[in-house]
Amino acid sequence: MTLREVRDLLGAEVLSGDELLDTEVHAAFGSDLMSDVLAFVQDQGLLLTGLNSPQVIRTAEMMDMKCVVFIRGKAPASSILELAQDRGLVVMSTPLRMYQACGVLYSAGLSG
C-alpha cells in the first residue's frame, strides 16, 4: 500500500514529506509507548501513535520506518516536523482514533 493510499483511507492531512507519498509500506504498528515500538517492530514501515513528542520521530528513525501517523487529530510542533523532514519521514495527522485508524488500514489489507 502506498502512503498516498494511507492518507486517503485515513482522511489524513500530510504535514511533512508530500513528495514521498509513492513510498510503499507492507505493515503497520500502533502504539503510544516508544519502548514497545523498539521491542516489537520488525519490518513495519508505518507507525500510528497518539504520542506527540520528538521521540516519536527518533524512534521511527531507529526502526527504519517510513511514515508516522498522528491519530486523534494530534498536531505535532514545527520542531518535530523539521526533524522528520531532515530524516526523510512522512508525517500525517488523522482525526480518527487509534482503534478506528488501525481497523481501516487493516481492512484495506495492511497487515500488522
Partner: peptide, 8 residues
C-alpha cells in the same frame, strides 16, 4: 510523556 518510562 516522551513514550518511555515503562520499565522496558
Amino acid at each position: 510523556d516522551l513514550g518511555f518510562g515503562a520499565g522496558m
